[in-house]
Design a protein around this nucleic acid. Structure first.
Lengths: 217, 217
DNA sequence: AGAAAAAGAGCGAATGCTCACTCACGTAGA
DNA sequence: TCTACGTGAGTGAGCATTCGCTCTTTTTCT
């Protein structure tokens, strides 16, 4: 099974038009989710006909997958930049935290999309998309921890796959907490109104938490 | 703003019938989510007519709210039982982890409610219930950590509010990972197919992670 | 070159399907 | 006979998808 993406005709239209369609669809899906989104509406908002829409994308799913695909590419490039550096594990983690704080604020839309996706229960689509999105970070974090274990930087009595999973959980929820209304309120409930004007506090506390969990002794 | 729940007529039917309806609806919503669930189907499966269904619940939302309401009550009582005990912090946390794993079936609903609330912006339907729960656990975890700090069980150089927040993040994502399709797939990606038949592994590793983060030295 | 024909891009009304919800009609007990 | 409960075919709205059409561009033929 392969993810249905755009048809060839979509590549033949002007870049401007392509971006307009993708931007409109991203906005719409982010606001309404997959089920409640209306392709006819998206087409109208993007200024094209339904017929044209269906010549570019053979189904609603194909349009959705394409939108997700582009979101993932953005995420990938941010992560790649961080991982390319030859910092140590902890410096890399701190960079990721900072990137999450900065990036999710500027790109609330993609985070919402992610939220939408995880809320849906369409198993056929989901497993494909999960593989696409999460494979970026999954292998990466696990490898990072395994390497650090070899170098005796972090404890050896742990399962690096599960610890990578917990680590990722912390980063994902952090991202939600900066991007989604509900999670923002929740973070405020925990740490007060001011948290959002003190990125340093959150970053250093989270680093303390992670260091404690990972490091030797 | 009030949540629509069941009509008076629902209280007048036999308990057996009531349970059958609730159980069927719970299963169905848990499998299909709100949008994709079909009331006519639920009525048929529960062995009652659509008309009867609509005399008990004045809308699809009302049925959903009722189902969620019961799920939340169950969850609350589980948490209460754990918190009532006079165990130490760590024993309590382990009990919560175990409860999350065991009750994942019930939690499917809670998770979906949470996911929808998080992702969508129109949250009029369920916001009250979730806000209730959130404010309960928020204060609870923070107080737990502050107490443990006083007793010099956990480190003193941390902000208990933020550490409570990180802790809750770990527990929430664990819950998601046992309850909803997307996060299940993701956990599988990290730790392989078998994780779901080895609750002990996940529980002990998560406890290690948390202990490392919280404990002194 | 100019006419004619074919190919293709774009359109949007129409189709057909899926439900949430209604209501005219039982039926059983008092 | 009256009331209360229950029934399920029917209604209408929403929406993914189709298809016959127009208009434009390219190709073929004289």
């Amino acid at each position: 099974m392969k993810l249905p993406l755009f048809n060839e005709s979509f590549t033949k239209i002007s870049e401007e038009k392509r971006n307009k369609i993708l931007q409109t669809a991203t906005d719409y899906f982010a606001e309404h989710g997959f089920e409640s989104s209306n392709i006819n509406m998206i087409a109208k908002k993007a200024g094209i006909s339904i017929g044209a829409m269906y010549s570019y994308f053979s189904s609603k799913e194909a349009l959705f997958s394409t939108v997700i695909h582009y979101a993932v590419e953005t995420l990938k490039s941010v992560m790649d930049d961080i991982m390319k550096g030859d910092d140590e594990l902890l410096s890399k983690l701190e960079k990721i935290i900072r990137a999450v704080q900065v990036n999710s604020r500027t790109n609330v839309l993609y985070t919402k999309l992610y939220g939408q996706l995880t809320a849906e229960n369409r198993s056929d689509l989901t497993s494909q998309i999960v593989a696409d999105i999460e494979s970026v970070t999954t292998g990466l974090y696990t490898a990072l921890l395994e390497q650090a274990q070899k170098e005796k930087i972090i404890r050896n009595d742990i399962d690096p796959r599960l610890f990578a999973f917990f680590l990722d959980n912390l980063l994902i929820t952090l991202q939600f907490s900066y991007a989604c209304t509900y999670y923002r309120e929740r973070l405020k409930l925990y740490a007060g109104e001011d948290v959002f004007s003190d990125d340093d506090l959150v970053a250093t506390q989270l680093m303390k938490f992670i260091k404690g969990a990972l490091l030797l002794n």
